[in-house]
Amino acid sequence: MSDAIRPFLAVVSARYRTLLQYRAAAFAGFATQLFWGAIRLMILAAFFAAATEPQPMNLTEVVAYVWLGQALLGMLPWNVDADFREQVRDGTVAYDLLRPLDLYSYWFGRTLAFRVAAPTLRGVPMVLFSMVLLPIVGLGDWALTPPASAFALAGFVASLVVAAMLATAVTLLAHISLLWTISGIGMDRILTVLVTVFSGLIVPLPLFPDWLQPFLNWQPFRGLADVPYRIYSGNIPAAEIGGELLFVLVWTIALVLLGRLILLRGVRRMVVQGG
């Protein structure tokens, strides 16, 4: 068993270590995300101040939702790995077949590292800033509150793990599509819109109109942000956490299977046309 996942872990760890070298980019990303976080908070606060009816989330929950979103932005599958795109463009992607690995697992490892590296670099400072620094400077109303309970924290961590898998599966679908489209720029744009809107990153999903809720509740992207953030703040009650995790897991498995199916065709194309 350990021998089976050994290559996979090695790939994840090597790619992860490589990506951690980009500290300047991480710092710039941190500054940008701080700025966007502040703007989102102000807009949502204005919305809450003007609201006449009770909302499905309270302001504290929304503040947590926004800060967690800014901290974990890099984990959302909104772009493709430039490294991978380059490899497809120059045809060297076919050389990955020289490794004695299942290609999907190999690429899953690479992509998982890509998705997880950015939030580790930016997420920790963002949480420290929003949870510790804001109350100190007297902006406690806008601070990230601690998780609703120990159980909520455990559920949050579990949901983040599943969210990372889901984000990887979605990104990998985009990576695999590069085998046909090559440039990947169109794919980036489509993904950005789909993911930022339907994960809840632009507006928390519960604040969307009621008639959209049935659709929003069943689409996979909410597992990326909406589910973990609402578990954290207690907006999703403890009793529903298990069901939500299962929901995200089922979508993840479905997207992994879809990815494998498409990759099978992509590989056939690769070995016929030669990269």
Partner: peptide, 16 residues
């Protein structure tokens, strides 16, 4: 981007 020796270590794991 990796030092040579780390590439070697990675290959060791990939080829088991």
């Amino acid at each position: 981007d990796l030092p040579v020796i780390e590439s070697f270590e990675l290959l060791k794991d990939i080829y088991r």
